[in-house]
């Protein structure tokens, strides 16, 4: 059984591993600990093992080896206890289509042992809080994507879980709904809710999470605050240059420029990371034009978690 050394650690995993019957090692010896009150983000591309990790932490995926505990309760051995401590928002809309908006919350409360009057009161209060009260009697099939997502979150916290798990909470939402959702998560965070979320949007991890674990091929490659992760790339500027001609050749040339810490071809452009040399831009333009290249596009930005991911894996986060 996996034990937390510090009682403040509400999620602890040790050597958590899942190998699927087809031989895929989806999660490979994961050691994690998440503290109470923290928003913890698992950032990685599709197929990195994020959902499998959430699956194991929420008793849906049985680990091949290693273990996980939630607030000191072993998830595998005592799943019925562990399930009382968690709320889960899965990737897809899993609202109960046979029930109304209100009933989705009411019966959820009943599943967790609330008395009828308590479940009713909790459902009403939560609907108010999530601005869904005027939809209480609506069919859940009539909700927009953003509203359905809000109801799923409302449902997942109705029984006051210690830890809220969200798997790709904003995948497929329009930008406005995404912002609204970030606001909800921030408010929950302020009220002390521990949140464990997965995402493949670096802005989401950057904006919301206290700590971010970058995951690929079932392993954690880096784990820190977003700010420190970005500092770890040892660059403060990122330049993307796109030309008609041979990108590899251009990448090699640009690498020799002063202050350039890395230069590589990615997604039809050369990506350069450098430190303190924004003045390099005119020189690059000059070099590209005199060197016989045709400049298509050039952009300058600050390093993001994407930069960190690229540095760690040599590929982009996006699919």
């Amino acid at each position: 059984m996996v034990k937390a050394t510090d009682p403040n650690q509400v999620i602890v995993t040790s050597g958590l591993t899942k190998v699927f019957p087809n031989g895929l090692r989806a999660v490979d010896a994961l050691d994690l600990s998440v503290s109470s009150g923290e928003i913890f983000g698992l950032l990685g591309p599709n197929g990195a093992g994020k959902t499998t990790t959430v699956g194991m932490l929420t008793s849906r995926v049985i680990p091949t080896s290693g273990g996980a505990s939630i607030a000191g309760v072993d998830v595998v051995a005592h799943s019925t206890l562990a399930k009382q401590l968690i709320g889960v928002v899965p990737q897809t809309n899993t609202l109960d289509r046979s029930l109304t908006v209100f009933e989705n919350l009411y019966y959820h409360g009943r599943y967790y042992g609330m008395r009828s009057s308590d479940a009713r009161a909790a459902a009403e209060e939560t609907l108010r809080r999530f601005k869904l009260i005027d939809r209480a009697d609506a069919d859940v099939n009539q909700l927009s994507g953003g509203m359905a997502q809000r109801l799923m979150i409302a449902r997942s916290i109705l029984h006051k879980p210690q830890i809220l798990f969200l798997d790709e909470p904003t995948a497929g939402l329009d930008p406005q709904s995404r912002l609204a959702l970030w606001e909800i998560l921030s408010t929950l965070h302020e009220s002390g809710q521990t949140i464990f979320m997965t995402t493949h949007y670096m802005e989401e991890a950057d904006q919301l999470c206290d700590r971010v674990a970058i995951m690929d091929h079932g392993k954690i490659l880096a784990l820190d605050t977003a700010a420190r992760l970005k500092r770890s790339v040892e660059a403060d500027t990122e330049i993307r240059v796109s030309v008609e001609e041979d990108l590899e050749a251009l990448a090699v040339h640009l690498k020799t420029f002063d202050g350039v810490s890395s230069s590589q071809v990615l997604d039809g452009a050369v990506l350069i990371a450098l430190r303190g040399r924004t003045a390099l831009v005119p020189r690059i333009v000059d070099f590209v034009e005199t060197g016989g290249f045709t400049l298509n596009d050039l952009s300058v930005s600050e390093p993001t978690l994407e930069t960190v991911f690229i540095k760690l894996t040599g590929k982009e986060l996006r699919d």
Partner: peptide, 14 residues
């Protein structure tokens, strides 16, 4: 399709 049994599967019972 709907995976709507999910909420009941996550409820505290085996």
């Amino acid at each position: 399709y709907t995976r709507e049994i999910e909420d009941r599967v996550m409820a505290p019972l085996p």
